[in-house]
Write a protein that binds this DNA or RNA. Structure first.
Length: 273
DNA sequence: AAGGGCACGCGCGTTACTTCA
DNA sequence: ATTGAAGTAACGCGCGTGCCC
């Protein structure tokens, strides 16, 4: 594995789904990004659906076997079908789960010995095929239940702990990448809004100037940006803003819901009864 | 029913190691 | 051959959750 392409990390500023920029998470346990890509369990709003999470058949076994042909499993070939058996491990991972690791830590007084008595970690490099299979699996679901973890570990000839660690690191990488993308998106969005604000302020100044000279004011064309809200018949957010936001959203391949906010402004202008 | 202990999984930050320019 | 940066496997810790007693 050499680059981000191999990791499937090519997150871009294009947003294929109709996510709305709703900055109010709909539930307490939401975890997503402004760009609407669900990171872990939930999303920014209910419109955003998580990727399909198949309840069974989490990994196509035949494809896996095809992948596994000629695979370097960093271990003795006879152990591929029974990685969880005692004494079978990759060089740097002798324990299959965090809890077991913790137990062992406690038992050894914090010192972990391997066969060589060497306490330094020997880093394993996953083979291309192993990484590819893990990637495929991650695409289908970014977390594993214990059964899935064990099955995948068996398929790859790795310790369940290694699969677990790989998924944890992979989630972290995804999140980091998404954060970068979101930062870039928000930066550009902010720039656009600043531009828009400047333009509108300029327009206000011009309109005020025109208003001060009645003759010109009477002759001028109807306002191009100010209009009436059709629902509450009050001065509303200019449709051009909406159009521009639509254009902006199209630029980023993602619609931004200015309209609800605009209507909220109208609501704010409604006389209190 | 409430609460403590335990196991477990996850996120996060970090470390140690590998690879490559 | 050396070196620094980037990538990543592995680790340690804290926290939340579910289960059991």
């Amino acid at each position: 594995m050499t680059g981000k392409e191999d990791l499937g990390l090519s997150l871009s500023l294009s947003f294929p789904h109709s996510h709305h920029l709703n900055l109010t998470p709909s539930s307490a346990n939401t975890c997503s990004s402004p760009s609407g890509v669900p990171l872990q369990k939930a999303s920014w709003n209910d419109v955003v659906s998580p990727p399909p999470y198949p309840s069974s058949g989490y990994f196509p076994a035949t494809e896996a076997r095809t992948f596994l042909r000629g695979i370097d499993v960093n271990r003795l070939p006879s152990t591929v079908d029974g990685a969880e058996e005692a004494g079978v491990s990759s060089p740097n991972s002798t324990i299959s789960s965090v809890s077991e690791k913790r137990s062992e830590r406690e038992a050894n007084g914090g010192i972990i010995d391997d066969e060589d008595g060497d306490t330094s970690r020997k880093k394993l490099r996953l083979s291309k095929d192993q990484s590819a299979i893990l990637e495929e699996s991650f695409k289908e679901h970014n977390t594993l239940n214990p059964k899935q973890k064990l099955a995948l570990a068996n398929q790859l000839g790795l310790q369940p702990r290694q699969v677990e660690v790989w998924f944890q690191n992979r989630r972290a990488r995804t999140k980091l990448k998404q954060t970068e993308v979101d930062c870039e998106f928000l930066k550009r969005w902010c720039e656009k809004l600043t531009e828009e604000n400047k333009r509108l302020q300029k327009e206000v100044v011009e309109l005020r100037a025109l208003k001060r000279s009645p003759l010109l004011y009477m002759q001028m064309a109807p306002p191009t940006t100010l209009t009436m809200c059709p629902s509450c018949v009050r001065l509303s957010v200019p449709p051009t803003v909406d159009q521009r936001s639509h254009h902006l959203a199209q630029t980023y391949h993602r619609p931004i819901p200015i309209r609800p906010l605009a209507h909220g402004l109208c609501e704010g202008l409604r006389p209190r009864s």
